[in-house]
């Protein structure tokens, strides 16, 4: 096996909202171009972990954080929010599109990062939509409002929108929780195709999805990391009883 290159590393990460601490002493390494799953019951801090990676938690004024996160060996404290978030994109639980056209949704990111020129932007939009496996479905109606797309299409549009700013890492926060099985399959397909050039972190409530899509998995419970391992190993021979209980559906 090739030596894995670490892209994100958390050291003693503690995250709190006011006096309520939802993550306790999380030490994790995330490797380049892997798909890492984060599973665990509700309120175990999965989403907070994800949003800590690109400083989105700070939008909540009561949030505070201890410990450190390194992205490409640099503490994210030293990286500007807009640069960090461009490098680490996120897909939210419910498809969230802006009430503008399909094209403008994807073009928004490049525009705020200073990409100019009609042709350049069109090219960026087309590439992003192709990578998200949406191009063929929308190429003839790029100027239609994005809200007219179906749920699954909207979620892939969100992926395209994130890809358009050329991130290194894509975070998924339960991306399929609002989708039907067919749309879910399409989103999962897109994730598999993106594996070659992106690091992807998937938070999910759905253990079957984690088993299908991810290569490595983290089991979080009440803000603590219980177990980390290759997905196959974790699902077939969990080392911790609590992991076993969770994946066999005894709680959560």
């Amino acid at each position: 096996m090739v030596k894995q290159e670490t892209i994100i590393k958390t050291v003693g990460l503690n995250c709190c909202y006011g006096s309520l601490c939802v993550l306790k002493d999380v030490n994790l390494e995330i490797y380049k171009n892997e798909i890492l799953g984060i599973i665990g019951p509700a309120n175990s801090g999965k989403t907070t972990f994800l949003r800590a990676l690109n400083k989105l938690n700070y939008l909540n004024s009561s949030y505070s954080q201890k410990g450190d996160i390194y992205f490409s060996n640099e503490s994210i404290k030293n990286i500007g929010e807009n640069i960090l978030r461009r490098k680490i994109g996120i897909i939210f639980a419910l498809p969230q599109v802006l009430p503008v056209s399909i094209f403008d949704n994807v073009a928004y990111g490049p525009k705020v990062h200073g990409v100019t020129g009609k042709n350049t932007i069109s090219q960026v939009v087309e590439n992003a939509l192709k990578k998200a496996y949406l191009w063929d479905e929308v190429k003839d109606r790029l100027n239609e409002p994005a809200v007219r797309l179906s749920g699954g299409q909207q979620q892939r549009l969100c992926i395209a929108r994130t890809l358009a700013v050329e991130p290194d890492v894509i975070l998924y926060d339960e991306p399929c929780s609002g989708l039907d099985p067919i749309s879910t399959a399409k989103v999962e397909d897109a994730m598999q195709q993106l594996k070659e050039s992106y690091t992807q972190i998937l938070v999910t409530n759905n253990t079957k999805q984690a088993a299908r899509v991810t290569e490595r998995c983290v089991f979080l419970l009440m803000g603590e990391v219980i177990e980390v391992g290759e997905t196959d190993a974790l699902f077939t021979e969990p080392q911790d009883k609590r992991t076993d209980d969770y994946i066999t559906g005894r709680f959560g």
Partner: peptide, 25 residues
């Protein structure tokens, strides 16, 4: 709030977010 979140998550600055994702609406 989600409009602001989208914009921030794509790396837009605060003023860009207000200018393009809040004010128009």
């Amino acid at each position: 709030f989600s409009f602001r979140e989208i914009s921030f998550s794509l790396g837009a600055t605060k003023w860009q977010t207000i200018r393009y994702c809040v004010l128009p609406y």
